[in-house]
Design a binder for these strands. Structure first.
Lengths: 118, 118
DNA sequence: CGGTATCCGCCGGGATACTG
DNA sequence: CAGTATCCCGGCGGATACCG
């Protein structure tokens, strides 16, 4: 997969990336969709942890950091004691919500009884 | 995560599944989006392998089997020598294409320079 | 309160060889 | 031509303990 360093191979830079797959990668984390969904309203860290049942602090943090890197969410730190951090959607994140809604409609109609375990 | 068998725990069946996440899981395979995209037209196995550069027979087969289980694609076997198998989208699969298109638009606009490696 | 740091298990995907 | 059958590896996600 263009990972070789043989001479004559296509340089990695030239491999064309599919924007659809790139988009999929942005939301590919196990909890990211739920997180984005709840971030339609600004939320604090602990609030998110309550809203996403079963997630640990460590994992929630890593998912949030990745979403932040991909510029889906903003992270606002209030310098006070006790600490307070607020997360919200960026413009890109907001524009993604309609897609989530369409995925939800499709899912209710078609992905109800899926067999593949994942 | 509701995997325990402790008494008093919520039975797995009652755990509410998010239809958006379920939808995400359907297309979560590394090559599935590309495969679905090319299957807008009916394709043969070897054709798909040429259209999805870098995928092996084994992996292509597994991705196709999963898509089939999730009822995104049809698999039609022609009983002849040499073998011939045609893949096509189901109705559910066809209805998913518009979502892929919207993901593509979003991706071209926002996911161009992502930092997260995946 | 909102995080890090560390360790670890699982499984999705890759390589390769073989087949009806 | 269109697949199986194996073996293997990296990395995501989970558990737990500690921190400013």
């Amino acid at each position: 997969m263009a990972r070789s360093s043989f001479e004559g191979e296509v340089p990695v830079e030239q491999v064309e990336v599919c924007p659809v797959t790139e988009t999929q990668n942005v939301i590919a984390g196990k909890w990211k969709i739920l997180i984005l969904w709840h971030l339609r309203e600004t939320r604090r860290f602990g609030e998110l942890q309550r809203l996403v049942p079963g997630i640990s602090k460590a994992i929630l943090t890593s998912q949030l950091r990745e979403l932040e890197k991909d510029q889906m969410i903003n992270r606002k730190v209030y310098q006070e004691v006790p600490p307070k951090v607020e997360y919200s959607l960026t413009e890109a994140g907001k524009e993604f919500i309609p897609i989530l809604e369409r995925m939800g409609e499709w899912g209710k109609k078609h992905a109800v009884n899926r067999k593949t375990v994942r």
